[in-house]
């Protein structure tokens, strides 16, 4: 176990290093000059060169990267070019909101996805099953931007049940979580349905039924716990999916998380912020995957760590 963990952590460090190199090179190759964004439209050529020198953007790529990496290793993500603030401070101010949103999304996708999967499996082949599978198909394929605006219009503007965007209370959390969670819910519904169908065919279910147990007890005590295990282990992997989703969802709902921060930074070539958010998201994904792998054998003894 310890050896496995050490190996995985070593791999994680390599992955993060690789991501930092790739992102850095991509940003360098971008046909847009961050210095011009800082210098603005009235700057003289001298001002532009002066800023370039001060930020070290006149250095060769490898030297720029080396500087960045050595700062990073001492825990310094640098200062934003345009906001002039510490990137770590900007991310720290926004990270809790994004995490909260992800927790909300996980709750939504599990509740909705698993329920749909179970119901569909039990009513396999019937119209309820078909309807649920069509719904899961839509929730997987509909653009989150459209879902977000639709939910806002119906539940916030027309019905007034929830606030129109913003951040702060539980009511603010519901619609963005739902938007972000619906995509995963569609996947989970399909997976839960197939594992449930698998489980319901097993001998121990038939035994339970033949013992004369009521359908509900068979379902909740014997079938669902066995079907749910492999799915729960996948939550960690969802974090990667959320990281791309939050950019859209946070922008529409005015949710002050790191997705919004990244989106604004990309538009203005604010390299330190883009790098910072990318590395933080990559960390989250790596950790999510690691936790998923570590938890899996605990809940399903058939899986072994190697």
């Amino acid at each position: 176990m310890i050896g496995y963990l050490a190996r995985r952590l070593g791999q994680a460090a390599l992955i993060l290093l690789g991501i930092s190199v790739v992102t850095f090179v991509l940003l360098y190759l971008l046909p847009a000059d961050p210095v011009r964004q800082i210098a603005g439209r009235s700057a003289t050529a001298e001002t532009v060169e002066n800023i370039r020198r001060q930020l070290g953007l006149d250095l060769p790529l490898w030297e720029q990267y080396w500087r960045y990496l050595s700062n990073l290793l001492s825990g310094n993500l640098g200062r934003s070019y345009l906001q002039k603030s510490e990137v770590s401070e900007l991310i720290a101010a926004r990270l809790p909101a994004s995490l909260l949103l992800m927790v909300g999304a996980i709750a939504c996708e599990l509740t909705i996805g698993l329920t749909m999967g179970v119901v569909a499996a039990v009513r396999r082949g019937g119209w309820v099953d078909n309807l649920l599978m069509v719904f899961s198909f839509i929730s997987v394929s509909a653009p989150q931007f459209v879902i977000a605006i639709l939910l806002l219009y119906v539940f916030a503007v027309k019905l007034g049940w929830f606030p129109i965007g913003g951040y702060g209370t539980f009511a603010h959390l519901v619609l963005p979580s739902l938007t972000l969670g619906l995509l995963g819910a569609g996947w989970y519904a399909r997976m839960m349905r197939s594992t449930m169908i698998e489980v319901l065919r097993q001998d121990y279910i038939r035994t339970a039924q033949s013992k004369g147990l009521r359908g509900r007890i068979v379902l909740f005590r014997h079938a669902i716990p066995n079907a749910i295990l492999p799915i729960v282990a996948m939550i960690g992997i969802d974090i990667g999916m959320f990281m791309s989703g939050i950019v859209v969802v946070e922008s529409v709902f005015g949710w002050p998380g790191i997705g919004q921060l990244a989106w604004q930074a990309i538009q203005r070539v604010d390299i330190p912020i883009i790098m910072g958010v990318t590395l933080v998201s990559a960390c989250a994904i790596v950790i999510g995957n690691l936790v998923a792998d570590l938890v899996a054998p605990l809940i399903d003894p058939r899986i072994k760590l190697r």
Binding site: Y153, I164, V252, G254, P256, Q260
Partner: peptide, 18 residues
């Protein structure tokens, strides 16, 4: 000043008196 408000959403909120 409320920041991070998508203009479409901000318009809905203004129409709602928020």
């Amino acid at each position: 000043f409320e920041i991070g408000q998508e203009p479409t959403v901000a318009l809905l909120r203004l129409q709602n008196g928020e």
